[in-house]
């Protein structure tokens, strides 16, 4: 049996995208993820109304989606896949903090759409660089 890689192991498998896997996505799983995303968004908005924008903003990075994903992956695929997904999410999470930083620096100084685009690009680039630096063989 193949040993599960650790978080420090580099991976032989190259990243790839398979559209057929997307077409076979379980609709119930998507429904749960929609619910998790919607509830988190509403909660962040409600907390903003109740306690102010900075407090509400904390919950824009609440890990509800990751929690929902891990539960679904463990159920539909395997516990090792859930752990691998979480390992990837450590780098994605660091990039998410960078997204927030770039957004905080640019909103109010650049046009809104450009600020969010910059922040999203920063997230994506940081996530890809992080993956490549840590885990690309």
């Amino acid at each position: 049996m193949r040993q599960e890689p650790t978080i420090t192991d580099r991976l032989d498998e190259r990243p790839r995208f398979n559209p057929r896997k997307v077409a076979h996505t379980d609709r119930k799983a998507l429904f749960y993820r929609f619910g998790a995303g919607a509830l988190t968004s509403i909660a962040a908005g409600a907390l903003t109304l109740a306690f102010g924008e900075r407090v509400g903003g904390i919950f824009l990075a609440f890990p509800a989606i990751l929690a929902a994903s891990l539960t679904l992956i463990e159920k539909e695929e395997a516990p090792t896949d859930a752990r691998e997904d979480a390992r990837g999410a450590t780098v994605g999470g660091a990039a998410l903090a960078l997204f927030a930083g770039v957004a905080a620096l640019t909103l109010g100084h650049l046009a809104g759409a450009l600020a969010l685009l910059s922040a999203t690009a920063a997230w994506l680039i940081a996530a890809l660089i992080g993956y490549g630096a840590l885990w690309w063989r």
Binding site: K21, E84, D85, R87, L96
Partner: peptide, 24 residues
């Protein structure tokens, strides 16, 4: 999530489990 479903390996797909979807 749909994007992540099509990606492999799982660790690479995991990057997108922390995507700024709610924030955006």
């Amino acid at each position: 999530a749909l994007l992540s479903e099509g990606l492999s390996p799982k660790r690479f797909a995991g990057l997108f489990s922390a995507a700024p979807a709610v924030a955006l």
